[in-house]
């Protein structure tokens, strides 16, 4: 078990390093930030001075070494755009994103477990067919399209909800709804399949033969086993939610990490891009480890290997 976790952690760490490398060099392919930050008629002198100040005049490899050294001192550089430590910007933006993603994830997992379990209880029944269709639609709907359509219908036409920004409950409904759609759709199908297998298993027959009530059969015996595959997929979807967050935050003007990332890329704010990616990747790394621990905690067969 320790070796299982160790191996998984090592894989994640290697992936993290690879990602940092890729981001560092790729972001430099987007062009020279000097063009964006200085007036068009800035003199060559000023340009050189700007490039020198931020180290852009040195070869990429050397810049990377400097970057590594700074990172190891806990310094992720200054935002070109805001003239503030990039890390500060990222840490400011994170709680908003976490709130959005957290609520969306908890809601979609909870709802998906209820819907998927009911669907699996009577496979082929009316509820199963309706929920299968709905979840398939949810899983395959393009979120940017849904987001814009949602704004058009509920904010522009019906005027029930605000178009964008952050505030009290009405501001949350559209972003969370859009962000939930895909994970919810996929999770319903995963829960349904896992529950279908669990409910037709021999141990469920044993539980029934023992006189255990149907509610406990479904939500204790079957669901507890189904959890093993649910957790794996839920973990991946949580990680994938970063994607969704970038789109949703951009469309709804939600001041989170996704929006910060896009804005920084657009403005070639390299240090901020690097900082958002580093922090996000570390968060994913930690999340993966947490999921592995959860998985081990849930499956005694792995625990005793």
């Amino acid at each position: 078990m320790a070796s299982f976790l160790g191996r998984r952690a090592l894989h994640s760490a290697i992936a993290l390093i690879g990602l940092i490398l890729a981001v560092f060099f790729l972001v430099r392919l987007t062009g020279d930030p000097t063009d964006l930050y200085l007036p068009i008629d800035a003199s060559l002198e000023t340009r050189k001075e700007f490039a020198h100040k931020h180290g852009f005049d040195r070869p990429s490899a050397e810049q990377f070494l400097v970057f590594l050294k700074d990172v190891s001192n806990g310094d992720l550089g200054y935002s070109l755009r805001k003239q503030r430590p990039a890390m500060e910007l990222v840490l400011e933006a994170y709680p908003t994103t976490l709130a959005l993603a957290g609520v969306a994830m908890v809601l979609s997992i909870t709802l998906a477990i209820i819907v998927g379990a009911i669907a699996a209880y009577k496979p082929g029944g009316v509820f199963d067919r309706i929920s299968s269709m709905a979840s398939l639609a949810g899983a395959s709907a393009p979120d940017f399209w849904i987001a814009i359509t949602g704004i058009l219908i509920f904010a522009v036409t019906l005027r029930w909800l605000p178009t964008s920004g952050v505030g009290d409950l009405p501001y949350w409904i559209l972003p969370i709804g859009v962000l939930m759609l895909r994970p919810f759709g996929l999770m319903v199908q995963v829960v349904r399949a896992a529950m279908l297998g669990a409910l037709s298993s021999a141990y469920v027959k044993t539980a029934r033969a023992k006189g255990v009530g149907e509610t406990a059969v479904i939500f204790v015996h079957a669901l507890r086993n189904a959890c093993l595959s649910i957790v794996t997929v839920a973990g991946d979807l949580t990680v994938g939610m970063i994607n969704g967050a970038v789109i949703v935050e951009t469309v709804f003007g939600w001041p989170g990490v996704g929006k910060l990332m896009i804005d920084s890329v657009m403005q070639r704010d390299f240090p901020t891009v690097q900082a958002t990616i580093m922090v996000t990747a570390t968060a994913i790394f930690l999340l993966n480890i947490a999921i592995d621990f959860l998985y081990v905690a849930l499956d005694p067969r792995i625990r005793h290997q």
């Binding site: 141990y203 033969a209 093993l228 499956d299």
Partner: peptide, 29 residues
């Protein structure tokens, strides 16, 4: 009603299955 029958199950009538490995729930002691 099935709920009434389930109350007999385990209490007055019980069953042992062929394959104990799959018949026991793997995630509960």
């Amino acid at each position: 009603p099935i709920a009434k029958w389930r109350d007999y199950c385990g209490r007055e009538i019980a069953m042992v299955f062929q394959d104990a490995l799959t018949s026991l729930n793997p995630v509960f002691s």
